[in-house]
């Protein structure tokens, strides 16, 4: 007992996926879905976040470090599995595999997404909204954003399902079935918001 932190590290990994990463993802999706309501609304939300005090500490402490920990330990988890969906093609086994595939897609997307937008520094361009639209008018970029967003949304919502199992909230098979349906409903909702905002930038 107490000789290693194996359990604690895995639990921290699991918790970080919800708090703060999941909450940040939710905020990020809601903020960007304001694009559906128009440029002014979107810009108001973005400016509010952009002008938050101690932004760099918020970005590092609530976004970068949690994601870095979740991703690095997550890669170790992905490596540790020997996927066998072809031999055991049960639905939950596919979800297990998909959780790992979307993990990798999301990680690659986030690195590219943050890297390109941080270096482009579009906030001070004439119209941030139009600059985003121009960028997304490239079909390859649009496809990358679409796939990246859907992967992140699935990883988050399916992650909530397994979080509830791992922390012993949904114990029985029926409870797990209901929670999965709710999580996938949430996935559909997030997808609508995400795809809607991506399309809105194009106008």
């Amino acid at each position: 007992m107490g000789t290693n932190n194996h359990f604690a590290i895995r639990k921290v990994h699991s918790l970080l996926g919800i708090i703060p990463i999941g909450f940040f993802f939710l905020e990020h999706t809601i903020t960007n879905s304001m694009a559906i309501l128009g440029e002014d609304m979107w810009m108001a939300f973005v400016s509010f976040l952009h002008n938050l005090p101690f932004k760099i500490f918020l970005e590092v402490g609530l976004i970068f470090l949690p994601i870095a920990f979740h991703a690095l330990y997550g890669l170790w988890i992905v490596y540790g599995a020997k996927n066998n969906t072809l031999r055991y093609s049960y639905f939950k086994n596919w979800m297990f595999y998909l959780q790992r595939i979307t993990a990798i897609i999301t990680l690659v997307f986030i690195i590219w997404h943050v890297w390109t937008l941080k270096t482009a520094n579009l906030y001070y361009s004439q119209s941030y909204f139009q600059a985003m639209g121009e960028m997304l008018s490239n079909p390859l970029v649009f496809a990358a954003y679409l796939i990246g967003f859907l992967a992140a949304a699935f990883h988050f919502t399916n992650g909530i399902w397994s979080f509830l199992v791992a922390w012993g909230v949904t114990v029985g098979p029926k409870a797990q079935k209901v929670s999965f349906a709710l999580c996938m409903g949430f996935f559909a909702l997030l997808s609508a918001a995400g795809i809607g905002s991506l399309i809105s930038f194009l106008q």
Partner: peptide
């Protein structure tokens, strides 16, 4: 809760099948 314990379960749920 030690190495190789419950936290290594990934909820693929093949076992119960």
């Amino acid at each position: 809760m030690d190495k190789g314990g419950i936290s290594d379960c990934g909820n693929a749920q093949n076992c119960v099948q």
